[in-house]
Amino acid sequence: MSSPPPKGEKYRRLLEACRDLPPVLTAVAHPCDATSLQSAVEAQRLGLIRPLLFGPEARVRRTAAAAGIDLADLPITDTPHSHASAEAAVAAVRRGEAAALMKGSLHTDELMGAVVARETGLRTARRISHCYVMDVPGHPEPLIISDAAVNIAPTLAEKADIVQNAIELAQALRFPEVRVAILSATESVNPKLPGTVEAAALCKMADRGQITGGLIDGPLALDNAISPEAAATKGIRSPVAGRANVLIVPDLEAGNMLAKSLSFLAGADAAGIVLGAKVPIILTSRADSLMTHLASCAVAALVAAARRAALAAAVA
């Protein structure tokens, strides 16, 4: 058996997959700390994005000078504060001036508030949801976890969109096969655990073509979703059990705890992306490493490329 790839190798593969893609015009909302600016500049150097900065210009330039970051000729749209930065960045996307949106040093709620605004935001018919693309040391392939940051207690209909968004992300990331586990505390359908009933319903929705593009099984407990040995011990036979590469959690609390457990106990990195809007949204934390920020940009570049390809196919 081959040994698992070393930490960071899965993200390096993401960056490599973007090598022949054009950089994505990206509206960066309120990049007023060194991490946001360094990430944007380095992502541009690697050809992942072409940043358009939206923030208080004097503050952005002071931050760059203090950190020794050369902004060169990066365009900056001057805004008075973080709310205005979010609104201006979203407006630029609506005007077609950018094909992706990137969070800077503002709160996630501020950015997402501008994104979901009914008249001026970036909503589509699809539910907006968040995905972590996790590089877990010792695990052979990336894991997509959804939704751990946007939808607090999603309904069955919202979960169907969350699953579809995650599947399309996996396809954009060129997963050879998308295997989706709908997680719960048990692999048995139990009316006392509503999440297990909804998991079974999601599987039937996939059978009926209401969710497409991946293999789906659930309910599955975490162990028999990702461990072939655990699945075999429980006698679970499916193409997903023990081999899942997409994990759909029952609610935000479960997803947040799962992702942070992998990050802080297993040393995993977690690239963040929001899907279901008109453009991919790069959603990272200021505490994330530079590699995680770059991986998030690479994910957005691959999603944008997949959308261009789908649009071209639809027009042809």
Rank of each mutant, 00 (worst) to 15 (best):
T120H: 15
I236H: 05
V299L: 07
A58K: 13
A65S: 10
E16R: 15
C131R: 08
L258E: 01
A157F: 00
T233F: 13
A72N: 13
P250C: 04
R61A: 04
S3L: 14
H81T: 10
K260S: 12
A91D: 11
A125R: 12
A27H: 00
V150M: 11
I49G: 02
G209P: 02
E97W: 07
E9R: 14
G218I: 00
L111K: 07
I167T: 10
R13N: 13
I273P: 03
P250W: 05
Q164C: 01
A92T: 11
M257I: 15
A17E: 14
L202A: 14
D73V: 10
D161G: 04
I69D: 00
K278W: 03
I128L: 14
E57F: 08
S129P: 03
T79I: 07
D33F: 03
S285H: 12
A172V: 06
R45G: 05
R179F: 05
A160F: 02
A65N: 01
I49Q: 03
A148P: 07
E168T: 12
S146M: 07
S188I: 13
A89S: 06
L265H: 14
S188E: 15
I248T: 03
A64M: 02
A287M: 10
V189Y: 00
P56N: 10
V303W: 08
K192E: 15
P51K: 11
P219F: 02
D207G: 13
G104S: 07
E158K: 04
L173G: 04
I167M: 03
I281E: 00
P22V: 00
S85E: 08
C203T: 10
V93E: 07
K159L: 11
